[in-house]
Amino acid sequence: MSKGWGWWFLAGFAVWTFFAVQWTEVGCDYPEAYLAVIRFGTPEGLEFLPACAG
Rank of each mutant, 00 (worst) to 15 (best):
A51N: 02
F48P: 07
V26G: 04
V15W: 12
A36T: 05
V37H: 00
Q22G: 00
E44C: 07
A20E: 04
F9K: 14
E44R: 15
A11Q: 08
E47F: 12
E44S: 14
G41K: 05
F19A: 05
T17K: 02
W16D: 07
Q22T: 03
W5S: 14
E32N: 12
A11C: 09
P31I: 06
F18K: 09
A20I: 04
L35T: 00
L46C: 10
V21H: 06
A36M: 05
G54T: 13
T24P: 08
V21E: 10
R39P: 03
E47Q: 15
F40C: 07
W16E: 03
F19S: 09
V15K: 06
L49T: 03
V15I: 15
C28A: 08
F40H: 09
A14L: 07
G54A: 14
F18D: 03
F19Y: 11
L46R: 14
A14W: 00
W23M: 07
L46H: 15
A53S: 15
T24A: 02
A36P: 04
P50L: 00
W16P: 08
W8N: 08
L10Y: 10
L46F: 13
A11Y: 01
W7H: 01
P43I: 01
Q22P: 06
A33Y: 02
G45M: 10
G41I: 09
F13D: 10
A33R: 03
S2G: 15
G41D: 02
P50V: 10
G45C: 02
T17N: 09
F48K: 06
E32W: 03
A53V: 13
A11M: 06
L10V: 12
P43C: 01
G27R: 01
E32L: 08
G27S: 08
A51Y: 08
R39F: 13
T17S: 11
D29K: 14
W5M: 14
P31R: 05
F9C: 11
P50C: 09
A33Q: 02
G54F: 14
G12Y: 02
E47Y: 11
F48A: 11
E47R: 14
W16S: 07
G27Y: 00
G4L: 12
V37I: 04
V26L: 00
Q22C: 03
K3I: 02
G6A: 13
V21T: 14
D29Y: 02
F40N: 03
W23T: 02
A33W: 02
G12S: 11
W16Q: 07
F40T: 05
T17L: 15
A53E: 14
A20W: 06
